[in-house]
Computed example of a mutant assay.
Amino acid sequence: MIMQRRTFTGSPIALQGPDRFADRMRRISDGLLDEGALVTTNWRINGGRAPWFALRVWTGREKAVENSLTAMGVQSLVPMRKGPDLRRRGRVIEGQMMPVIHGYVLVQMVALAEYLAGLLGVEHVIDVLGGCERPMRLSDKEISRFNALARNGDYDWERPVALVVRAGDPVWITAGPFCDRKAVVVTPSKKGRGDVVVSIDFMGGQVPVTVPLALLKKL
């Protein structure tokens, strides 16, 4: 006959002390980010060029994530453009600034998985594009070019574009985190300006992304 033990000694792991598990994980993430930022800074001082990566974040929280990373000493960037103008009672109200590509924040950091994993502890961050082990790298040159085009107004919502695309059309993305990738138009723009939704074949799956029409080239 097997006797069943009904009592246990000791305390469950992660329940001792006043700290919550989530709090300890956040401290670990913050520590990794601090270390990664320091390593990246030293890299730049010594003439190195750390690669850039794209973080997928909650739409509408791009600047909040950028500000959080900047406060931690992590180089980050959200290229911005002017949004659609509002027309009310014959008046035109200029559009507010908005991200060129919604739901993404660019970061520059030494390409070590443990440092990139620390980014996942930042509020509103969903994941690293491509994963922490094999993330999609972006060159410093391409990020500078993309940001310069955005600041120049090339991706402003109201800027007319001499390009007509229909649902199902194959297109080429010309700049940004998905530069030089093929996509398929899902929801086109019929006004010759503004945004379109495209589907990008990435890591064996389809990634829907909303991008400016001006960011595309028809194949």
Rank of each mutant, 00 (worst) to 15 (best):
L116I: 04
R44N: 12
D127N: 11
G73T: 07
L15I: 12
P79W: 02
S144H: 09
V105K: 02
V39F: 09
T174E: 02
L33K: 02
I173F: 07
G47I: 01
D154M: 15
E133K: 10
N46D: 12
V122L: 00
R61C: 02
Y155N: 00
D127P: 00
M203P: 11
V100T: 14
R27S: 13
V186H: 13
R27C: 07
V78L: 06
L55G: 01
F202N: 06
G47T: 00
Q108D: 04
P135I: 03
P12Q: 14
S68Y: 07
P18W: 00
I45L: 15
R137F: 08
R49F: 10
K190Q: 11
A162G: 05
R88F: 10
T174M: 05
E94I: 12
E123W: 07
P160M: 05
G131A: 00
T9Y: 10
S68L: 07
P188C: 05
T70E: 08
W58Y: 15
D156I: 02
Q206M: 15
L138W: 04
T210L: 11
Q206F: 14
L116F: 00
L215N: 01
E62D: 03
D156E: 03
V78A: 06
R81E: 13
V196D: 08
Q16W: 14
N152R: 10
S139K: 07
E123Y: 05
E142L: 06
P135L: 08
R44L: 08
N42W: 14
V92F: 04
S189D: 03
F146S: 02
T40P: 01
G131V: 03
R6M: 15
L216W: 10
R193N: 07
E66T: 01
M25I: 10
G192C: 07
S189K: 08
V171A: 07
T210H: 10
F53H: 09
G48H: 12
G10T: 11
D23V: 15
K82E: 15
D19P: 09
M203R: 15
L33Q: 05
G204M: 08
Q108T: 02
E142T: 06
A37D: 03
S144R: 11
W52D: 04
I93R: 12
S144C: 09
M97T: 12
A37M: 04
L129C: 08
R44S: 11
R89I: 14
I45Q: 14
V211F: 06
T210I: 13
V57S: 01
G17R: 09
G153F: 05
L149T: 10
I101P: 08
P188I: 01
H124C: 02
A71S: 05
L120E: 03
G194H: 04
Q206N: 13
G36A: 06
G153A: 05
R26H: 13
F202A: 09
T59L: 09
E66N: 04
M136D: 11
N42A: 13
